[in-house]
Amino acid sequence: MSSSSTTTTTTRLLMLKASDGVTFEVEEAVATKLGAINNMVEEEGSEDLICLPNVNGKFLGMVLEWCKKHANNNTNSDKGNDEVNKWWDKEFVMDLDQNTLYHLLMAADYLSGTELVDLLTEKVASMIRGKKVEEIRETFKIKSDFLPGQEEEIRKKNSWAFE
């Protein structure tokens, strides 16, 4: 599975190799949306092949899809661009299952994709916001690991000790 992008002759192409050997050919401007790759590229005499042993192909592909969208949209200086990006981001995170969300977050964090981490953490935060304990546990499939009495203790700590 290798994806190549339409390029002009002037842009440098990088080859990213995921943990499972899947490679992606991407423009430098796209890959450098990721802080970690940007750092590698800025080093003098850097090679065009970059190995990323901590990310597998499936999730690296998704991360790069996000980068491509944002790199492209940044080059146009349209006014409505922000709106387009926001709309696209919303679509991007809308139907992510928790397994994918987890691995994407790990990948984005590892690759220092600050904006993407921000988008994904906001998605997780929105799954918690305004929910009661039981709903939070249900959402995240959390089994209560409090010992008997411990939860009670926290409850007590969070209620007025005076009055």
């Binding site: 953490t121 935060a125 304990v133 209560s144 926290i154």
Partner: peptide
């Protein structure tokens, strides 16, 4: 980063969900 995006009152509730 996730939890800092939540208002403090929501964190109080979140604390009961897991150790």
């Amino acid at each position: 980063e996730i939890f800092a995006k939540l208002p403090a009152e929501h964190i109080i509730e979140l604390r009961h969900s897991s150790k």
